[in-house]
Computed example of a mutant assay.
Amino acid sequence: MSGPSPTQRSLTRDDVAWYVRASLGPGRDVVDCGPLGGGGFATVWWVTLDDGGAAALKVAPPPEARLLRYERGLAAAEARYFRLVAAHAPQVPVPRVLHHGRDPERGEWLLTDRLPGRPLAELTADIDAGPARADFGAATVALHRITGDRYGYDGGRAGGPTWSRAFAAIVDDLLADAADWDVAPPGGPRLIRELVRHHAGALDEVRRPALLHFDGWDGNVLAAPDATGAYRMCGLVDGERYLWGDPLLDLVSPLLFRRAEDEPDHPFLRGWRAAGGQPAAFDPAARVRLGLYRLHLYLLMIVEMPSRGMTPENAPDRSALLAELLDRELADLGRGRPRP
């Protein structure tokens, strides 16, 4: 894919100055600013403020942009997430919310502190990111100690009173999005729904709705060298896709396109276990759930492609990889399953 996603607004320096004044007051100004890459949903700019402060501006998609069902209200969701973490897990470094606003013409935006450090995705091969990944594993355990009052998303989006019902509703919404966008996922909707129903018992071993970041891939974890030169985690960003559910769901994105149960010595999992993350070893039900959560992520990444301006023609490598990965999870989850 070349160029911005259809969900991303085009901004100028004058636009950024307007959002800053609307957030912090008419006397505030922007010394410097520029776009931040790495994402394909909202538009994000770094900002240097007139008092020397560093901020990040995230502007939600324009009203005419077609979104997936769970993507409604993500700017407000991100503000809620950062405030939840600041209040209940202050040891986890997330940006401080400076302002969340809406305007009839300028849309919805979020202004936060800009944290130091670089995304893990930008670290070169000669840098050992292991300590930062272990820090992130430990931080994830702290986040999971925050408990919600229902499973799934908030804000009127897919959820439910049990994890199996919430997860089924989340997958159903993605399959409805696939139909809306004329996307045919591998295996087809019937098989995907049947596998989620078949494994409801494993899902319902989850008895507490933990706070989940969900999107903890390398682009959203920041790291910087400490006094010894070792790179340590110094920030967690992009909390807009948070939900409530099984802590194991947060083991998928940090090991993107891999399998946590096959890599017990991965630095993230070492940090997770050291901080008390459970289970320390993955029993059969946990392995089933991890397979379902990879199925969900790969399905989401396939379904979101047209909304981001991607097709099998202009993004053939992504399309082929996701189809292969989803096929593998479908096959593994289907072993030993009675035919419908």
Rank of each mutant, 00 (worst) to 15 (best):
H88Y: 06
P104T: 01
H99V: 07
D15A: 05
T140R: 12
F257E: 13
V85K: 04
D149F: 09
G160D: 01
G216F: 02
P26D: 15
W181S: 04
R83Q: 10
P209M: 09
R287W: 07
P131L: 04
E261Y: 04
R208I: 09
A86I: 05
G219V: 00
Y298M: 07
A285V: 08
R72T: 05
V288G: 11
L236F: 11
G334L: 06
L67V: 06
W272Y: 15
W217Y: 11
V92H: 01
V288Y: 07
E329M: 10
Y231V: 06
H296C: 01
L236C: 15
V221H: 10
R328H: 13
F268S: 09
P279K: 01
P225T: 12
A285E: 03
R106A: 00
T112R: 03
R258F: 10
D204K: 11
G38K: 03
L236G: 04
A223Q: 03
M233C: 13
A79I: 08
L325N: 12
Y153I: 08
F82K: 01
G219F: 03
P119V: 12
L295G: 13
D29I: 07
P104C: 00
R28W: 05
P247V: 04
R69Y: 10
D265K: 04
Y19F: 02
L292S: 04
L49H: 10
L115C: 11
L333A: 02
E329K: 11
R118V: 14
I192M: 05
A86P: 06
A77S: 14
L11G: 01
R96V: 13
A224S: 14
L299K: 01
I170M: 15
G25H: 07
L203N: 03
D180P: 01
A132V: 07
Y242E: 07
P254M: 06
A166E: 04
G229D: 02
G117I: 06
P312D: 05
G3P: 06
L251T: 07
G148F: 03
R9E: 00
G38Q: 04
H144Q: 12
D332I: 08
V97I: 01
D126C: 12
M233I: 08
H198G: 06
L67R: 08
R150E: 14
R207N: 14
I146S: 05
V47D: 00
R9L: 00
G291L: 05
V196G: 00
D50R: 02
G277N: 01
R72W: 08
V171Q: 02
R102C: 00
R83G: 09
L115M: 10
G156L: 09
L175C: 03
M301D: 13
P189L: 08
N314K: 08
R96D: 12
A200D: 05
L236V: 15
W46V: 04
G235M: 02
Y242F: 15
P185A: 15
G216H: 04
A134P: 09
R207G: 14
F41N: 12
T7K: 12
P116G: 14
P119F: 07
H144I: 08
E304S: 14
S5V: 10
L174Q: 12
A281L: 13
G309R: 11
D317I: 09
Y151P: 10
P338Y: 05
